[in-house]
Design a protein around this nucleic acid. Sequence first.
DNA 1: ATAAAGTAGTTTATATTATAAACCAAACAA
DNA 2: TTGTTTGGTTTATAATATAAACTACTTTAT
Lengths: 95, 95
Amino acid sequence: MYRKLNPILHSQLRLAVISLLINVKDADFTYIKEKTGATSGNLSVQIDKLSEADYITVNKFFKGKKPKTVCKITKNGIKAFEEYVNNLKNYIGIG
Amino acid sequence: MYRKLNPILHSQLRLAVISLLINVKDADFTYIKEKTGATSGNLSVQIDKLSEADYITVNKFFKGKKPKTVCKITKNGIKAFEEYVNNLKNYIGIG
DNA sequence: ATAAAGTAGTTTATATTATAAACCAAACAA
DNA sequence: TTGTTTGGTTTATAATATAAACTACTTTAT
Protein backbone atom coordinates (compact mmCIF):
# COMPACT_ATOMS: atom_id res chain seq x y z
CA MET A 1 0.00 0.00 0.00
CA TYR A 2 2.45 2.66 1.09
CA ARG A 3 5.37 2.47 -1.31
CA LYS A 4 8.77 3.46 0.00
CA LEU A 5 9.74 7.08 -0.52
CA ASN A 6 13.25 7.53 -1.88
CA PRO A 7 15.11 8.87 1.16
CA ILE A 8 17.44 10.92 -1.00
CA LEU A 9 14.48 12.92 -2.23
CA HIS A 10 12.46 12.81 0.98
CA SER A 11 14.33 15.75 2.43
CA GLN A 12 12.86 19.21 2.26
CA LEU A 13 15.93 20.90 0.87
CA ARG A 14 16.95 18.20 -1.59
CA LEU A 15 13.39 18.02 -2.84
CA ALA A 16 13.32 21.78 -3.31
CA VAL A 17 16.60 21.68 -5.23
CA ILE A 18 15.37 18.92 -7.54
CA SER A 19 12.00 20.59 -7.93
CA LEU A 20 13.75 23.78 -8.94
CA LEU A 21 16.20 22.09 -11.31
CA ILE A 22 13.47 20.17 -13.06
CA ASN A 23 12.06 23.46 -14.34
CA VAL A 24 15.24 25.07 -15.62
CA LYS A 25 18.17 24.19 -17.87
CA ASP A 26 20.57 24.67 -15.00
CA ALA A 27 21.07 26.85 -11.93
CA ASP A 28 23.97 28.15 -9.91
CA PHE A 29 24.59 27.82 -6.20
CA THR A 30 23.59 31.35 -5.34
CA TYR A 31 20.37 31.17 -7.29
CA ILE A 32 19.40 27.88 -5.67
CA LYS A 33 20.27 29.29 -2.27
CA GLU A 34 18.02 32.30 -2.84
CA LYS A 35 15.10 30.31 -4.18
CA THR A 36 15.20 27.69 -1.46
CA GLY A 37 16.14 29.98 1.42
CA ALA A 38 18.74 27.46 2.56
CA THR A 39 21.96 28.26 4.35
CA SER A 40 25.14 27.84 2.33
CA GLY A 41 26.37 24.99 4.49
CA ASN A 42 23.23 22.97 4.25
CA LEU A 43 22.95 23.57 0.54
CA SER A 44 26.54 22.57 -0.04
CA VAL A 45 26.02 19.26 1.74
CA GLN A 46 22.75 18.47 0.01
CA ILE A 47 24.12 19.32 -3.43
CA ASP A 48 26.90 16.83 -2.75
CA LYS A 49 24.41 14.13 -1.88
CA LEU A 50 22.33 14.72 -4.97
CA SER A 51 25.48 14.67 -7.02
CA GLU A 52 26.73 11.45 -5.44
CA ALA A 53 23.38 9.84 -6.18
CA ASP A 54 23.81 10.94 -9.81
CA TYR A 55 20.63 12.98 -9.64
CA ILE A 56 22.44 16.18 -10.62
CA THR A 57 25.74 17.16 -12.19
CA VAL A 58 27.83 19.84 -10.58
CA ASN A 59 30.18 22.09 -12.49
CA LYS A 60 32.63 24.32 -10.69
CA PHE A 61 34.60 26.98 -12.52
CA PHE A 62 35.62 30.60 -12.33
CA LYS A 63 33.55 33.30 -13.88
CA GLY A 64 36.00 36.14 -14.07
CA LYS A 65 37.51 36.15 -10.64
CA LYS A 66 34.65 34.49 -8.83
CA PRO A 67 34.04 30.81 -8.30
CA LYS A 68 30.81 29.49 -9.67
CA THR A 69 28.95 26.25 -9.09
CA VAL A 70 26.37 25.24 -11.64
CA CYS A 71 23.94 22.37 -11.10
CA LYS A 72 21.88 20.51 -13.64
CA ILE A 73 19.47 17.64 -13.18
CA THR A 74 20.33 14.30 -14.81
CA LYS A 75 18.02 11.80 -16.51
CA ASN A 76 18.41 9.67 -13.45
CA GLY A 77 17.33 12.59 -11.30
CA ILE A 78 14.25 13.23 -13.42
CA LYS A 79 13.29 9.57 -13.19
CA ALA A 80 13.79 9.48 -9.44
CA PHE A 81 11.75 12.64 -8.96
CA GLU A 82 8.87 11.33 -11.05
CA GLU A 83 8.88 8.08 -9.16
CA TYR A 84 9.00 9.90 -5.86
CA VAL A 85 6.04 12.06 -6.80
CA ASN A 86 4.03 9.05 -7.89
CA ASN A 87 4.73 7.20 -4.70
CA LEU A 88 3.91 10.25 -2.65
CA LYS A 89 0.47 10.36 -4.19
CA ASN A 90 -0.37 7.20 -2.26
CA TYR A 91 0.12 9.10 0.91
CA ILE A 92 -1.57 12.36 0.16
CA GLY A 93 -4.58 11.05 -1.71
CA ILE A 94 -4.06 12.48 -5.18
CA GLY A 95 -4.17 10.66 -8.49
CA MET B 1 8.35 30.06 -3.02
CA TYR B 2 9.05 26.80 -1.22
CA ARG B 3 6.97 26.85 1.93
CA LYS B 4 8.26 24.98 4.93
CA LEU B 5 7.11 21.40 5.27
CA ASN B 6 5.93 20.51 8.76
CA PRO B 7 8.75 18.32 10.04
CA ILE B 8 6.40 16.23 12.15
CA LEU B 9 4.61 15.13 9.01
CA HIS B 10 7.62 15.07 6.73
CA SER B 11 8.58 11.61 7.89
CA GLN B 12 7.63 8.61 5.83
CA LEU B 13 6.15 6.60 8.66
CA ARG B 14 4.34 9.43 10.42
CA LEU B 15 2.92 10.57 7.09
CA ALA B 16 1.70 7.04 6.37
CA VAL B 17 0.06 6.83 9.78
CA ILE B 18 -1.73 10.14 9.33
CA SER B 19 -2.66 9.30 5.76
CA LEU B 20 -4.18 6.06 6.98
CA LEU B 21 -6.00 7.63 9.91
CA ILE B 22 -7.49 10.34 7.77
CA ASN B 23 -9.47 7.71 5.89
CA VAL B 24 -10.83 5.72 8.81
CA LYS B 25 -12.69 6.39 12.05
CA ASP B 26 -9.83 4.92 14.05
CA ALA B 27 -7.24 2.16 13.82
CA ASP B 28 -5.33 -0.04 16.23
CA PHE B 29 -1.60 -0.53 16.53
CA THR B 30 -1.51 -3.89 14.81
CA TYR B 31 -3.58 -2.72 11.88
CA ILE B 32 -1.41 0.36 11.39
CA LYS B 33 1.68 -1.80 11.67
CA GLU B 34 0.41 -4.13 8.96
CA LYS B 35 -0.68 -1.39 6.60
CA THR B 36 2.50 0.63 6.94
CA GLY B 37 4.92 -2.28 7.15
CA ALA B 38 6.69 -0.58 10.04
CA THR B 39 8.48 -2.33 12.87
CA SER B 40 6.80 -2.19 16.26
CA GLY B 41 9.54 -0.10 17.81
CA ASN B 42 9.51 2.52 15.14
CA LEU B 43 5.73 2.66 15.09
CA SER B 44 5.58 3.00 18.87
CA VAL B 45 7.95 5.97 18.80
CA GLN B 46 6.21 7.70 15.91
CA ILE B 47 2.74 7.25 17.41
CA ASP B 48 4.06 8.95 20.54
CA LYS B 49 5.30 11.89 18.52
CA LEU B 50 2.05 12.31 16.66
CA SER B 51 0.23 12.11 19.94
CA GLU B 52 2.49 14.66 21.62
CA ALA B 53 1.87 17.02 18.72
CA ASP B 54 -1.84 16.53 19.28
CA TYR B 55 -2.29 15.18 15.77
CA ILE B 56 -3.77 11.93 17.03
CA THR B 57 -5.30 10.61 20.22
CA VAL B 58 -4.14 7.30 21.59
CA ASN B 59 -6.34 5.03 23.66
CA LYS B 60 -4.91 2.06 25.47
CA PHE B 61 -7.15 -0.55 27.07
CA PHE B 62 -7.62 -4.27 27.35
CA LYS B 63 -9.85 -6.13 24.99
CA GLY B 64 -10.55 -9.28 26.91
CA LYS B 65 -7.10 -10.32 28.00
CA LYS B 66 -5.14 -8.50 25.32
CA PRO B 67 -3.83 -4.96 25.36
CA LYS B 68 -5.05 -2.74 22.61
CA THR B 69 -3.90 0.63 21.37
CA VAL B 70 -6.34 2.61 19.27
CA CYS B 71 -5.38 5.76 17.38
CA LYS B 72 -7.62 8.42 15.97
CA ILE B 73 -6.75 11.59 14.11
CA THR B 74 -7.63 14.92 15.74
CA LYS B 75 -8.95 18.10 14.13
CA ASN B 76 -5.51 19.52 14.61
CA GLY B 77 -4.06 16.54 12.78
CA ILE B 78 -6.43 16.94 9.88
CA LYS B 79 -5.56 20.61 9.61
CA ALA B 80 -1.82 19.92 9.73
CA PHE B 81 -2.12 17.21 7.11
CA GLU B 82 -4.09 19.42 4.75
CA GLU B 83 -1.60 22.21 5.16
CA TYR B 84 1.29 19.84 4.60
CA VAL B 85 -0.26 18.53 1.40
CA ASN B 86 -0.88 22.04 0.12
CA ASN B 87 2.67 23.07 0.82
CA LEU B 88 4.00 19.94 -0.77
CA LYS B 89 2.27 20.81 -3.99
CA ASN B 90 4.72 23.67 -4.42
CA TYR B 91 7.47 21.13 -4.63
CA ILE B 92 5.95 18.46 -6.79
CA GLY B 93 4.17 20.65 -9.26
CA ILE B 94 0.52 19.82 -8.67
CA GLY B 95 -2.38 22.19 -8.12
C1' DA C 1 48.33 50.31 1.45
C1' DT C 2 45.38 48.32 4.58
C1' DA C 3 41.25 47.35 7.02
C1' DA C 4 36.45 46.09 6.77
C1' DA C 5 32.86 43.94 4.44
C1' DG C 6 31.10 40.96 0.90
C1' DT C 7 31.02 36.61 -2.15
C1' DA C 8 31.09 31.82 -2.71
C1' DG C 9 31.40 28.39 -0.93
C1' DT C 10 33.45 23.98 2.45
C1' DT C 11 34.21 21.65 6.71
C1' DT C 12 33.12 20.29 11.11
C1' DA C 13 30.27 19.93 15.10
C1' DT C 14 25.84 19.32 17.08
C1' DA C 15 21.02 18.38 17.30
C1' DT C 16 17.34 15.71 15.59
C1' DT C 17 15.35 11.54 13.49
C1' DA C 18 14.88 7.00 12.18
C1' DT C 19 15.78 2.41 12.92
C1' DA C 20 17.07 -1.73 15.06
C1' DA C 21 17.83 -4.52 18.92
C1' DA C 22 16.76 -5.89 23.30
C1' DC C 23 13.44 -6.35 26.52
C1' DC C 24 8.82 -7.10 29.13
C1' DA C 25 4.38 -9.21 30.41
C1' DA C 26 0.92 -11.97 29.42
C1' DA C 27 -1.46 -15.55 26.55
C1' DC C 28 -1.55 -19.49 23.88
C1' DA C 29 -0.04 -24.00 21.96
C1' DA C 30 2.39 -28.42 22.05
C1' DT D 1 6.34 -26.70 31.20
C1' DT D 2 8.81 -25.04 27.60
C1' DG D 3 8.54 -22.62 23.64
C1' DT D 4 6.01 -19.30 20.61
C1' DT D 5 3.08 -15.50 19.62
C1' DT D 6 0.89 -11.05 20.64
C1' DG D 7 1.32 -6.40 21.69
C1' DG D 8 3.79 -3.55 22.70
C1' DT D 9 8.01 -0.23 25.28
C1' DT D 10 12.68 1.20 26.13
C1' DT D 11 17.24 1.93 24.96
C1' DA D 12 21.10 2.11 21.90
C1' DT D 13 22.95 3.16 17.49
C1' DA D 14 23.02 4.81 12.82
C1' DA D 15 21.69 8.23 9.63
C1' DT D 16 20.21 13.00 8.57
C1' DA D 17 19.66 17.76 8.84
C1' DT D 18 21.21 21.99 10.35
C1' DA D 19 24.05 25.52 12.18
C1' DA D 20 28.37 27.44 13.23
C1' DA D 21 32.89 28.16 12.17
C1' DC D 22 36.19 28.51 8.79
C1' DT D 23 38.75 29.22 4.06
C1' DA D 24 40.00 31.85 0.28
C1' DC D 25 39.51 35.30 -2.19
C1' DT D 26 37.40 40.13 -4.03
C1' DT D 27 35.56 44.58 -3.55
C1' DT D 28 35.07 48.90 -1.40
C1' DA D 29 36.24 52.48 1.60
C1' DT D 30 39.86 55.11 4.21
